[in-house]
Amino acid sequence: MSLQFFLIVTLNGLTLASLYFIVASGFSLIFGLMRTVNMAHGSLYMVGAYVGFAVFDPLYASNTWGSQAWLIAIVAGILAAALLGLFMQVAFLGWMQGQELRQALVTIGLSIIIADQLLARFGGNPFQFFAPDMLFGPVQVPFIGRYPVFRLFQVGLAVAVGIGLWLLLNKTKLGIIVRAGVDDRQMLAACGVNVPLVAATVFALGAGLAGLGGVIGATAQPMALGVDARFLLMSLVVVIVGGMGSIGGTALGAVLIGLAEQWGQVLFPTYSVILTFVIMASVLAVWPQGLLGRKPV
């Protein structure tokens, strides 16, 4: 096996991990603050992609907006997912705070409804975004040769999202409130903080990240009905491996799963699908909190 091949597959793993990180970080954020297992996270991913595409398609065909269409689609996808997330939190999840089983069932129900609504509205045909010319095609990378520039862009975006979230949680007032909420919601409310408002904000932010992931993901791979389950499962695995509610843990989990998928495909294609679950099971057996999760006090 040549060094070049080794590097390409590893880079493929890292670029796939970037997409996983963007989607799973929203999942982790929501879980971290509200202990809400949002089983509709994959649906938010899909809503971001479908709404983004509904905006993108006519714009791309027109001459005036063609070059900006993709950026507008990203904004539309984020907004659509964030608004839907906000609605979910306010209308359903907010008032059943703490009842985890009930929330899980409600979000599963929502995900089924959303999937059917998307099928009714957009039909079953798959689609794909076309990245702007600047981000499409191969570039020369040292030691590797031609490599798709969009996949490198994915890594950059994931790093930006990671740094942004870290700054938000560690260097802002909102971050202090969020972290306080993780430890003791009642005390936080007693301090005069409007906890439901904070919860809604964080939920919208997490959902918006899923929407961003949707547009990015649907540019890298075709989007079709059914990916919601795939990305929900992937988010769960990444967050369980990395540790609940930890940004660093989510990044580590995403990298592990991304690399495992790509190397698995190369080394033993027939059984590669089970490798991610083997990793998850092993991590749970040794570190039940996930690799970087906090031990319960």
């Binding site: 091949f5 597959v9 493929n12 790509q262 190397w263 495909q265 190369v266």
Partner: peptide, 10 residues
């Protein structure tokens, strides 16, 4: 399979 990049690399 949705990501064929490592297949293409081979």
């Amino acid at each position: 399979t949705t990501d064929f990049s490592s297949i293409i690399a081979q």
